[in-house]
Each structure stands twice: as C-alpha cells, then as structure tokens.
Design a protein around this nucleic acid. Structure first.
Lengths: 242, 242
DNA sequence: CCATGATAGACAGTGGAACTCTCCACACGC
DNA sequence: GCGTGTGGAGAGTTCCACTGTCTATCATGG
C-alpha cells in the first residue's frame, strides 16, 4: 500500500508518518521507484503500536524508538525480546536525570537490595531494576514517605503474582498472528496504565467500604469543596452502552 | 524564611519557584512588604511534593496543579482528599484526547462494566474510572490485544489487594507530621512508579524461572524455542477473538 | 542618608520535543 | 501531457517548563 493508505488506515497524518520514519521508529517502505515505496501490514501494526506506546503509555518518541528497536532485533524470541524491552524501558526512566550528579544514597539502595533478597527474585546482574527502585525510594523519602523493605514486601508479592499473569498472557496469545515480541511489548508496557486504573478504582472502592461514603461524594453536611469533578465529565458517551 | 532560603533548602531555583507560584502550584508567601514575603515549612514540603509529582511520577505541571488544589481544599479529611486526588488524576488522563471525536466504543465499555460488576467494586457514579478503563481497553484492542473481563479479573483482584495495602499505609502513617491528605497523594500517586518497577523486576525473574536464562542474556545455544511450547502456561481461555 | 543587594511581580525569551509545512523532482493514471 | 500523489529533506510551528530581564521597592550597613 502507499503512504496515503497507511495514513488513512492508521489515522496518523502523512507528515507524522514521515517524521516517524525519519526518527527511525518506523522502517521505511520498500522503495519501488525514486518517489514510490510501499508499505505492508507490518508497517500498519508497527504504526499502531507506536501510537499506543506514545499516547496510551505516554512514552517519549525516543523511548518508543528504543523499545521498537529492541523488538526488531528479536522478532521471534519472546524471552529475549522481553529482556530487551525491559532494558529499553529502564533506559527510558534513566533519561530523566541525565546529569550524573544524582547519586543514589546508600540507605535506599540497601533497602532495595534487602527487598530483592527477601523476594528471592532472580535478577540479571546488569539489570538496572535495583538502582531504579532505590532511586524511587529515595525520591519518596525526600518528600517524607519512608518505605522500608518490610512494608514493600507485600507489594512485591502482589507484583510477583501480576507478573505470573503477565507471562501467562504472553504464552497464551499464540493464536494471533502478532509476533510474540510484539505481545511482550503490549503486555509489559501497554498494560501498565490499565493496572494503574484498576488500582485507583480499587482504592476508591476500598475507601468507600472503610469510610462509608464514596470518595468525591459530598460529605454528609454542607461544605462541598468545589474542586471536585464535573458531573458531565465523561464527554459524550453514556455508560449504559451495552 | 525568604525565597532564597526556600530555594537553597529545596534545591529548586528561585526562578522556578516564582514560576510555580505564578502557575498556582505553590501558594505565595505571606507578604510582609511590597517586595518581601516569607515562606514556612509548609511551602517547603509542598515544593518537594511538586518536584516528586513532576519528576518522579512525570505529571505535567497543570496536572500537579489540579492535584495540589484538590489537596489544599481538604487538608484534614483524608478520605475526601483521596477522592479529590483520584478525580484530579483522572482529569489528567483526560487531557490527552482533548478533542471530543474519540468516542469510546460500546465493546470496550461493556467489557469494563462487566469487569467492574464482577469485582463488586463500589464506584462513585460519577467516577470516570469506567470510561478510562474502556478507553485503555479500546486502545489495546486497536493494536491487537483484546482483553476480556475474564482475563482482567485476576488482575483486578490483585489491584484490590494492592489497594488494601495502600489504605493501610494511609491509616498507619499518623505518626508523621504530614497531613493525611499529603500522604494520600504520596501513596496513590507517587507509589505508582515503584509498583511498576516491582512488576518489571518480577517479570524478569518470572521469565528467568520459566525459560531458564535471564532476559537480556543471550540464550545458551542458538534457536531457543521461540513460540513453541510454553511450560507452565495456563491458557484457560484465549482472549483472541471477541 | 544613601549605597548595596535581595526581593516580588510581570513579562519576554529559551530550548527541547513532537509534530507540521513547504519544496522539489519525479512517477502514475487518465 | 498533466494534474495529483509521492519520497525525502529541511525549515517552521506549537506547546511546555522553565529561565532571564526589568523595575520598583524594601532592608540593612556604613
């Protein structure tokens, strides 16, 4: 297909497609002439994946590029692709503090190590997970929320169970004609917002069952705080669209 | 204290502090003269919280502003503050597709509804969680990952348990002199990156224990059975066609 | 009293990211 | 032939999060 069809089918403007190609997020079409190239379904899928990474997950274009590159390297080896994708994501996180001044303090690092020990997780020695975790803990400590490994352990156990589900998902999805590597990206990266939404809803519900009134609902007597949510918020659709 | 001290103690440049004040993220100092105002510990804590929201969690300044505003309205009522914060976060997510063209299709919406039914969660009728969930599911479906409510239910259960831990954290933290509302922000918003890091590490470990070689490592001998047999896969149902 | 220096407040400017536009010479279909 | 579509490349645009500059104070030390 030609670029205009790719654009029409993906909903992405031609100019943007060209931009993605320039930035190496999308491989160029197969050139058939000096000013003609054609694109196939793979381009379309890749393009949709890019949009999902960027708009659903909110990754930067360069981070998406890293992930996609990792994915291209290993279309057929899911396991390896998963590793590369995880590595690429970690790289993304690392882009925020590019200046090396921000050393991770010993305290948070030790806490992270102890947590990982306690879980018994097998991490690749080069994995940056420890450092990332330590960095996050440090940031939280700076705002006054000191989390120790005992507190985090139950969270880690739940993360563990989530990961089991994730890997099951990966294995189960063989029927699609998507490459497993692509599924790895979807399951590890794109599922994150979904999980966070689920957590927020669960928090709302849990808060309700503990304190009685749904959060955001008006308190028993007066003093409606005004900062709340607009009733007409969810624009357009009616939830009853079953 | 004066602005220079606030800057020194927080590590945030004066110009940036002024910017935050202009943008209403930070309340202005208490003016003592036309060109003098003084700031207290509350300003310092708020400033650190802003930095955490923006750099740790990656929120936009305006989103952080919404959350902080919600928080200010209700310094003392944790429960209410939690609701407001959740609402503010949802508002943030909503900023991505400002154009109203993007209707949520009936399919994803129905799936979201069914999932929420299945969990038995008590959601505020105005909560945008459903819509957000549906929107995410729709995005994932567009890239070929069709998740039905049966598949999501175990994830939801884990989210539920996570939420229980979260609320425990909130209740337990009374010893700090931080307002409960601030803790609510920290626990709901700032913990997200930590949980995602835990999940990624757990995935790495789980992948290791299933496939033997740490992800990112190269497989022992060539041709690792890419898609062939999956050992512990428990494909109860295939989420493929819907 | 006055020089010095730190403010507060307003507003313009900067740099990076993610597009979006404009050209151009060519190719394709009629 | 000729008008539209195309690939490629670079310039331009928009938005955001700052950052710098300016002016009118005000605080203080000499």
């Amino acid at each position: 297909m030609r670029i205009s069809e790719l654009s029409r089918r993906s909903g992405v403007p031609i100019a943007t497609i060209k931009y993605y190609i320039r930035e190496k997020l999308l491989p160029a079409g197969n050139p058939t002439a000096h000013n003609q190239a054609d694109y196939d379904e793979r381009h379309l899928r890749r393009l949709r994946l890019i949009r999902a990474l960027v708009s659903v997950r909110g990754l930067s274009v360069s981070a998406a590029s890293d992930i996609l590159a990792a994915l291209s390297e290993n279309e057929e080896n899911t396991h390896l692709a998963l590793g590369l994708v995880l590595g690429a994501m970690q790289a993304e996180e690392r882009k925020k503090p590019p200046q090396e001044g921000e050393e991770v303090a010993a305290g948070p690092m030790a806490e992270a190590e102890r947590l990982i020990d306690a879980t018994g997780w097998q991490l690749h020695p080069l994995s940056t997970g420890r450092t990332q975790l330590a960095r996050s803990l440090q940031s939280m400590a700076q705002v006054g929320l000191h989390l120790d490994w005992q507190t985090l352990l139950p969270y880690a156990r739940l993360a563990e169970q989530t990961a089991v589900l994730d890997l099951d998902q990966l294995s189960a999805g063989g029927d699609d004609r998507l490459s497993l590597a692509e599924r790895a990206v979807q399951v590890t990266v794109l599922l994150e917002p979904v999980l966070m939404i689920l957590r927020r809803m669960a928090q709302e519900s849990e808060s309700f069952s503990r304190y009685g009134s749904p959060p955001g609902e008006e308190p028993p007597a007066g003093a409606r705080p005004a900062a709340g949510e607009e009733p007409a918020a969810a624009p357009g659709e009616t939830p009853g669209a079953a």
